[in-house]
Each structure stands twice: as structure tokens, then as C-alpha cells.
């Protein structure tokens, strides 16, 4: 009976994943390897192609301005001494930062719907559901991001654009430091060659994690986590029979993800403090008193 139980759970979680995420690894790999009938993504490798992408991929790259009354990204008076070209560059970087935020907000929304479809999640105390999302969404987000990355860049705008790693690296500090650690993680993570069914369980295990700070009913979350982790272990054995150490290697990635999120939260804090830009209210909620 346990065997049957885990198979049902695997199926339910995989279905929830396929239903709720607009992009998945199979889709991303088809686009990245050019094996799709849809148009090739627009390559964004400098400010000029970024601006072209902003115009042509407007629907999915549209960036909201979440500025409060202290002035938005377009407030030219903030940089009175900066030359015009540099100002344009700064504005483009701020817009790019907002595009990243929009994508994050969209993914957090998808992750929430996915979590709700994980059997048992909605039976948890509502405050615990909030806590699990608050601490889990960024780890999950960077896991999903790896599916859209190869060593040269990152698929954006629902596959309509491909932003090069070199271009992201070339941006002014701290923006230029933002993505490089994610590429390094993605290279190591993608070497595990997980498919979407594996990833679905891994993402569910990230979210249903019993050691998040402030959980009300730890043992209930641990029970849920245990059933998902067991399903993941059995599924990996069946799905990757030649790779017996895949499960422990994957569990090690959880520590890398935590480190990646802590580092990311620090960078976002730095941007918030030193740059004339604003943070989406949902992301503010997640980052506030996080670690």
C-alpha cells in the first residue's frame, strides 16, 4: 500500500506543477536547444537589444513602478550631476530590476497555487502556510530559474527573450552581481539532469519544510514533508535507476539554495538602501524580517 500511496502523491504533485507553472524544464529546453516551432527568442546582449526587447516583448516584460512618494525610477533630479548617457543606463538597469521583480511576483503567485494543490498543504494552519511560502518561495524560484538557464544565459519573457550572462554581468554594481551566483548554482544543479516530475517533488519538498522559523504546528509540517521526501526518494530511484546517489546529492542542494537566498536578500537590501528604486509590496512582505 505504501508503494501505491507514493505513486498517487507523485502523480498529484506532478500534475499540480504542470498545471500551475507557465514555464517548465521540458518547454525551456526545447526553446534553448532550438527544437521548437515557435520563433527563436530575441537575444538580449546589450542596452540596445534590451530596449528592443522592452518594445517587442512588452506584454511579458512590462514593469510596474512600485515607487512610493519618495520618487520613482524616472526621477531625473536624483542624479543631477550624472551625464545623460549614464542616466539612461541607470534607468535601463532600474527597469531591468523591475522586470525581474514582475517575473518574481508572477512566479510567487504560481508557487502559491502549486502549494495549495499539494495534498495536505491546505489543511495546515493558515499562518503556517504563510510561513512556508515566505521562506520557501525564493529557494523554489531559484530552482525553477535553473531550468531556464544554460551556461550562456537565461530565458525570459515566457521564452520570448534570452538574456545573456555576459550582459547581466556587465551591469553596474550591485545589479551586475545579482545573477552570477544563480548561474553558478544552475550549472551544478542542471548537471543532476532532473526532469519536471523530479522537480515538482523537489519544489514541494522545499515549500513543505519543517524547520522554517515561527511555525505553529511543526510536527504536522514535518509529517507532510516526510511523505513528500519519501515520495521523492522512491521516484528518483525509479526514474533514475542508474544514479543511486541522486537523492542524497539533491538534498545537499537545499543547503546551497538557502545560502543563495540569504545572499540574494542581502543584495536586494543593498539595492533598496542605495538605489533610487522600489520593491513590489509582495516581495517586501517576503523579505521583511526574513533572516
Amino acid at each position: 500500500p505504501m508503494e501505491a500511496d507514493h505513486k498517487i502523491l507523485v502523480k498529484q504533485i506532478h500534475e499540480a506543477y504542470m498545471k500551475n507553472f507557465n514555464m517548465n524544464k521540458a518547454k525551456a529546453r526545447l526553446i534553448l536547444t532550438g527544437k521548437t516551432s515557435t520563433p527563436q527568442p530575441l537575444i538580449i546582449h546589450d542596452m540596445e537589444t534590451f530596449q528592443l526587447a522592452e518594445r517587442t516583448l512588452a506584454v511579458h516584460m512590462v514593469s510596474g513602478d512600485y515607487a512610493e512618494s519618495d520618487g520613482g525610477v524616472g526621477d531625473r533630479q536624483v542624479f543631477p550631476a550624472v551625464a545623460c548617457e549614464e542616466l539612461e543606463q541607470r534607468e535601463a538597469e532600474a527597469r531591468l530590476f523591475h522586470c525581474c521583480q514582475s517575473t518574481s511576483v508572477e512566479t510567487v503567485t504560481e508557487l502559491t497555487e502549486f502549494a495549495k494543490a499539494v495534498p495536505g498543504f491546505q489543511s495546515l494552519d493558515l499562518n503556517d502556510q504563510v510561513t512556508l511560502l515566505k521562506y520557501g518561495v525564493y529557494e523554489a524560484l531559484f530552482t525553477l530559474l535553473a531550468s531556464c538557464m544554460n551556461k550562456d544565459g537565461l530565458l525570459v519573457a515566457r521564452g520570448g527573450g534570452f538574456i545573456t550572462r555576459e550582459f547581466l554581468k556587465s551591469l553596474r554594481r550591485p545589479f551586475g552581481d545579482m545573477m552570477e551566483p544563480k548561474f553558478q548554482f544552475a550549472t551544478r544543479f542542471n548537471a543532476l539532469e532532473l526532469d519536471d516530475s523530479d522537480l515538482a517533488l523537489f519544489v514541494a519538498a522545499i515549500i513543505c519544510c519543517g524547520d522554517r522559523p515561527g511555525l505553529v504546528d511543526v510536527s504536522l509540517v514535518e509529517q507532510l514533508q516526510e511523505s513528500i521526501v519519501q515520495a521523492l526518494r522512491l521516484h528518483l530511484l525509479a526514474n533514475h535507476p542508474d544514479d543511486t546517489f541522486l537523492f542524497p546529492r539533491l538534498l545537499q542542494k537545499l543547503a546551497d539554495l538557502r545560502e543563495l537566498v540569504t545572499e540574494h536578500a542581502q543584495l536586494v537590501q543593498e539595492i533598496k538602501t542605495n538605489e533610487d528604486t522600489s520593491l513590489h509590496p509582495l516581495l517586501q512582505e517576503i523579505y521583511r524580517d526574513m533572516y
Binding site: S102, V105, V108, T109, T112, E113, K116, L126, K134, L282
Partner: peptide
């Protein structure tokens, strides 16, 4: 609860990111 208003909202009903 106030501190995580939007997360609560997302959990209790389907809110499109556009509405946030």
C-alpha cells in the same frame, strides 16, 4: 497577519499578479 497581507490574500483566493 497584517505583515503578510498579500500572502494571506493569495492563499485564500486566486489573485492574479496584475491585481496586486
Amino acid at each position: 497577519k497584517e505583515k503578510h497581507k498579500i500572502l494571506h490574500q493569495l492563499l485564500q483566493n486566486s489573485t492574479s499578479p496584475v491585481d496586486l
